[in-house]
């Protein structure tokens, strides 16, 4: 299975990865670019960029609204690829979107043209929340062909054979869903996280935990539980939404995002400092 070297290099370092998410084009193209760049300055190790789809069934209200703002400001798959090309960031970028946009892209049916273009603009991987391992064959093949990682989500309900099927297909990192439900910031960190991490303890692929992480303290707690990375979306999208609502300057919102990113990254680092030294990854 192809592994993207840039993504691999992130997890080979001896510190937990901070992986923020924003919807590309939220609330508009230019501001969104500034926001993504602010996350990189704030210490992001990988950035997940949402390519907005009209029916985001896995998202809670925060990211649904971000997707509506991005679509209304004219974001499309082609604009998204331009967006990625224009970004001035030095960290690996992963695209999070729904399968229909991947399937429809380009002149032929099927995921290959999308993946080819994604590789071409420098994306390192894909997360597709409505594509379980059972249906992922063609996309996995295209990702192998073009050197992209395909990240799968392990849910609290994923067990037994399903885990094995996913283990065979996943690359880059595995996205550990911290609790049941849709995306969204929460005030607590679920015990389901520990159980989910324990179930995939012996997997070779790095484990990044997402869904509900809002504060540096959550990040620390999750890294202490054994995560190799933390994924944060809604807590950052909230900052973008507040900025859009109160019409704040792009600079002011970017600065808030950078600060929040720093808090989360520092939390993750603090969590790692409290933990046993991490075993060498082979």
């Amino acid at each position: 299975m192809a592994e993207n070297e840039r993504l691999q290099a992130v997890f080979e370092r001896d510190e937990p990865a901070f992986i923020p998410y924003l919807a590309a084009g939220d609330p508009d193209y230019e501001a969104s670019k500034a926001y993504v760049e602010a996350l990189a300055r704030g210490g992001a190790d990988v950035i997940e960029l949402g390519l907005p789809f009209s029916e985001p069934i896995a998202e809670g209200p925060t990211i649904q609204n971000a997707i509506v703002r991005a679509l209304e400001s004219g974001m499309t798959p082609d604009r998204f690829f331009e967006f990625v090309e224009e970004l001035d960031v030095d960290v690996p970028l992963v695209c999070m979107t729904y399968y229909n946009l991947i399937y429809q892209y380009g002149s032929e049916d099927g995921p290959r043209p999308f993946v080819e273009k994604a590789a071409d603009v420098g994306l390192t991987g894909l997360v597709v929340p409505d594509l379980p391992a059972e249906e992922a064959g063609p996309l996995r093949a295209a990702c192998d062909e073009f050197g992209l990682d395909l990240v799968f989500i392990v849910a609290p309900t994923t067990e037994g054979e399903r885990l094995e099927r996913m283990r065979e297909q996943v690359s880059g990192y595995v996205y550990v869903q911290a609790r049941l439900g849709t995306t969204g910031a929460r005030d607590d960190v679920s015990d389901q996280t520990d159980e989910s991490l324990a179930r995939i303890d012996d997997w070779d692929v790095p484990k990044a935990v997402g869904f509900g992480i809002k504060e540096g303290e959550h990040a620390a707690r999750i890294v202490r539980a054994g995560a190799d990375g933390i994924i944060v979306g809604s807590a950052l999208v909230d900052i973008v939404a507040d900025g859009a609502k109160s019409d704040d300057s792009v600079e002011a919102v970017a600065e808030r995002l950078e600060r929040k990113a720093r808090e989360l990254k520092d939390g993750a680092l603090a969590g790692a400092a409290d933990s046993e030294p991490r075993p060498e990854r082979t």
Binding site: I57, A58, Y99, P129, D130, L131, P132, E134, E135, F152, I153, V154, A155, P156, T157, T158, E159, R162, M166, Q177, L180, G181
Partner: peptide, 8 residues
Amino acid sequence: YVPEALMP
């Protein structure tokens, strides 16, 4: 074509 959480 559904989120993993629903597959079980």
